[in-house]
Nucleic acid binder design. Structure first.
Lengths: 133, 133
DNA sequence: ATTCTTGCAAATCATTTGCACTTTA
DNA sequence: TAAAGTGCAAATGATTTGCAAGAAT
């Protein structure tokens, strides 16, 4: 198993117990969880955990660039530790979010007048599972 | 000038005065305005306008499919009347949102397990204007 | 007359902030 | 002990909702 202590240090993030637990959770559960899901799950292990700490931690992770934030739906942010560029598909029926492989899309778009920092491709629809049932 | 009365009827939307004004504003100002911008601007012409009506109207427009909603940033929704598929670029410095032409991206992505309903491509960075100054 | 639209005020809910307490180097 | 991390409680702010009054056919 990867050393998340070192991983955090690499990003100039002090590796406190809570922070290690959060990044571990994100690395283990690549389900694009919300703050609340992460909080509820970690609460089982850390009964004193506060949601503010989860918010603080994730905000710091996003600022330092170790974690990506997805605004795929307006009313809840989701967090993603996957570093390989990919798109996201959200099923409108079951709410599940899937990773989608993408080719070199950036090179296909005329972006000569812009300096690109972030690239988000969100697709919404119905997943196979929900289509069959 | 286009008849927005007919345009709304085509989408089974009763063309009330307020609704015509909102769709007219979106058609004239393709700047992806927020609810608040639309409200503030229309208030100059319609002093009795309420923000709830703007919310109701835009919600209806999105449901009926005449207008697209952009969740490019978490804390404010933006609305778009442009019907030609395109991507959006947001400048992190000046906050401006630009339309970007896109080629046939959908055909390049493996989506055989999904039924696509919506397709959103958001790019963030710095625009030319902000880079030079 | 009935159905649809409008709009005020209150509610909601994810996220942020102020501040005091605790931990770490 | 100074700096950083944690967490409660309150604040914020965009959006939604309940409901009563007004407008359209």
């Amino acid at each position: 198993m990867k050393s998340f202590k070192k991983e955090l240090k690499k990003y100039c993030i002090y590796p406190s117990y809570h922070r290690i637990k959060v990044i571990e959770y994100l690395a283990k559960h690549k389900t694009h969880p919300t703050v609340d899901i992460i909080y509820q799950e970690l609460l089982k292990e850390i009964p004193t955990l506060s949601k503010t700490t989860v918010y603080n931690t994730l905000k710091l992770f996003v600022e330092k660039g170790i974690v990506l934030v997805l605004a795929i739906d307006k009313n809840e942010l989701r967090y993603d530790y996957n570093t390989i560029p990919h798109a996201h598909f959200k099923c409108e029926k079951c709410g599940g979010i899937y990773d989608i492989e993408i080719p070199e899309i950036e090179s296909l778009i005329r972006l000569k007048d812009f300096k690109v920092i972030e690239f988000h491709l969100y697709i919404k629809g119905i997943c196979k599972k929900c289509l069959t049932f």
